[in-house]
Design a protein around this nucleic acid. Structure first.
Lengths: 242, 242
DNA sequence: AACGCTCGGTAACGGACTGTAACCGGCGTG
DNA sequence: CACGCCGGTTACAGTCCGTTACCGAGCGTT
C-alpha cells in the first residue's frame, strides 16, 4: 500500500486504490521504459537476496525502477527505532523519498534475487525539463506516493490488527493482479517479522491474525502461501477500531 | 511532522528533522514568494475558521501556500474511517497530495481564520519547465512530504501514546521556532480531538499523556497553552514500544 | 441567573494487543 | 542421524490504551 507505480511496463489496467480513481494523465500518455531509456541512460543492476539496493547515508544519485524481485524499504531513527515502510515490486519506482537530498534517506533491501533499472537522477531531471510528459509523470509518481502513504497512515490509525492484516493481503493481491498474475493465489515474499513491522504489530499477532482469517474461511494459509477465498469477507470482516 | 515546507518566506534556518540534514539545493537557491509570483499568477484568499480550504472531490486546479493561520488535512475512507493526517502552517505548501489527479484527494479545514496564496497548478507546471530551480524546488517539496509522512509512520508504529504526544509537541515547537517564534512557549491551534486523531489515540489518552508530561515536569500545560520545560526529557522520556 | 452546549480533565474498568515462552517443522551442517 | 538454527505457530499472563462515565470551566442564549 506504499508504492510509486510509474513507467510500469505491466499490462495496462485501470487502477482503483481507495478513493483515487482519476489519474492525471491518460494511460496512452505514459512514457514506457523503452521511451524513457531514449532520454535517460538507464543501467541494469542485479541484487541478490538480502543485499541492500541502497542504505541511508549513501550518496543519492539515481532512482531505481524494479524489474524483478521484491524489496522492502526500512525507515530507521537515530534512537534505534526501525520500521518497514513499504514493499516494492515490478514497476515500482524506488528512491523518490531521497530526491532533493545528497544522501539516501532510508534502507532498501532485496527480499529475493532481483533486478532493477538504475536511472541516474541529474540526467532524469534535465530530461524532465525537455519533455513535459516525463516531468508530469515524475511529479505524479511522487504525489501518488504521498497519497499511498497517507492511506496507509489511515489504515494504521483506524484499523485493528486483524483488519490491518486483511487490508495488507488485499493490497498485495491487487498489485499482484495488476501485474497480470493471479489475485487469489500468491506467495508472500517477506517474513512474518517484516509484515509485522510494516503493519506496526508483533509477528505473533500477525500469525494469530492469519490463523484467525484462515479459521473464518476468508483465506487459506500455508507458511508463505496465501489463497484468497472470500475477498469481501476480508474487506468487511471486522469493524473499524472506531 | 507532516508538511511540505517550500518557498518559505520565513527566516532561513538550517533544518534538522530526524535523519535528513542535507537539503538538495542550498538555501540561497530557494525561490521566494516574490520571485515565484513573477512566474505564477498567485491569488490571495482568506479562509474563516472552520471553513474548508478544499474538500475531497472538488476539482483540483491549484496548490496553496499558507500565509497565516493553521489548517488540518483529513483523510477519509469510503467506509467512514477518518483521520487527521497533518497540520499546516505558514510556509507550508498544501495540496501536493492531489497533484496528478483531477480532483482533490482529501479535506483541508481552517483551524482559525487564515490566509493563503492560491497557486494555479497548470501555470505552475509550465513555469517549472522554463525555470529549472522552480522545478527542482517543487520536486523537493514533494519528496520532503514523503519523508515526513514516513517519519510519522515510524513514530505511529514504534512509539507509545505518551512518547507520541511528546514527539508531536517537539515537532510543533521546532516548526514554531523555524518561523521565528518561541520554541518553548506556544498555543495549540487544534482541539484535543484533532490531536488525538492525528496521533491515532483517543482524546482522553492525549489528556492523560499531557497531564503526565506536566507532572513529570517536562512541560507546563494550561488548556491550549504549552510551555516546554525540558526538551531532552520529552525526547528521551520513555523508551520505545519495541 | 439559569440553561444548554462544547471542550477539557479525571477515574475505574475491560479488552486488545504485547511479551514471554514453549513447541513444531524444515533445512543446513557437523 | 543428531544437532542447532530459523521461521512460524500457539498458549498464557501482563499491560497499555480504549471505553464509559462523570465533573468542571467557558460561553452564548434565553
Amino acid at each position: 500500500m506504499t508504492t510509486a507505480t510509474a513507467f510500469a511496463s505491466a499490462p495496462t489496467a485501470t487502477r482503483s486504490i481507495g478513493r483515487t480513481p482519476a489519474v492525471a494523465f491518460e494511460r496512452h500518455d505514459e512514457i514506457g521504459l523503452a521511451e524513457l531509456q531514449a532520454h535517460v541512460p538507464a543501467v541494469r543492476r542485479k541484487i541478490a537476496q538480502g543485499q541492500y539496493l541502497y542504505r541511508a547515508g549513501q550518496p543519492f544519485a539515481a532512482l531505481f525502477l524494479v524489474n524483478t524481485g521484491c524489496f522492502k524499504t526500512c525507515e530507521l531513527a537515530e534512537d534505534g527505532r526501525e520500521q518497514v515502510t513499504g514493499f516494492r515490486m515490478r514497476g515500482d519506482l524506488v528512491g523518490v523519498e531521497s530526491i532533493g537530498l545528497s544522501q539516501f534517506a532510508c534502507d532498501v533491501v532485496a527480499l529475493e534475487d532481483g533486478e532493477v533499472w538504475e536511472l541516474p537522477y541529474p540526467p532524469m531531471l534535465t530530461a524532465c525539463l525537455r519533455i513535459p510528459v516525463l516531468q508530469a509523470r515524475l511529479t505524479s509518481a511522487l504525489a501518488e506516493e504521498v497519497r499511498r502513504d497517507r492511506l496507509w497512515m489511515l489504515a494504521l490509525g483506524t484499523l485493528g490488527a486483524e483488519r490491518r492484516v486483511a487490508a495488507f493481503l488485499l493490497d498485495l493481491a491487487e498489485r499482484h493482479a495488476r501485474l497480470g498474475f493471479s489475485g487469489r493465489h500468491f506467495i508472500l515474499r517477506m517474513s512474518r517479522a517484516d509484515m509485522a513491522s510494516y503493519l506496526a504489530l508483533k509477528h505473533e499477532t500477525v500469525s494469530r491474525a492469519l490463523s484467525r482469517l484462515d479459521a473464518l474461511g476468508h483465506i487459506a494459509v500455508q507458511r508463505r502461501e496465501i489463497r484468497i477465498l472470500d475477498a469481501d469477507g476480508l474487506r468487511h470482516g471486522a469493524e473499524a477500531v472506531h
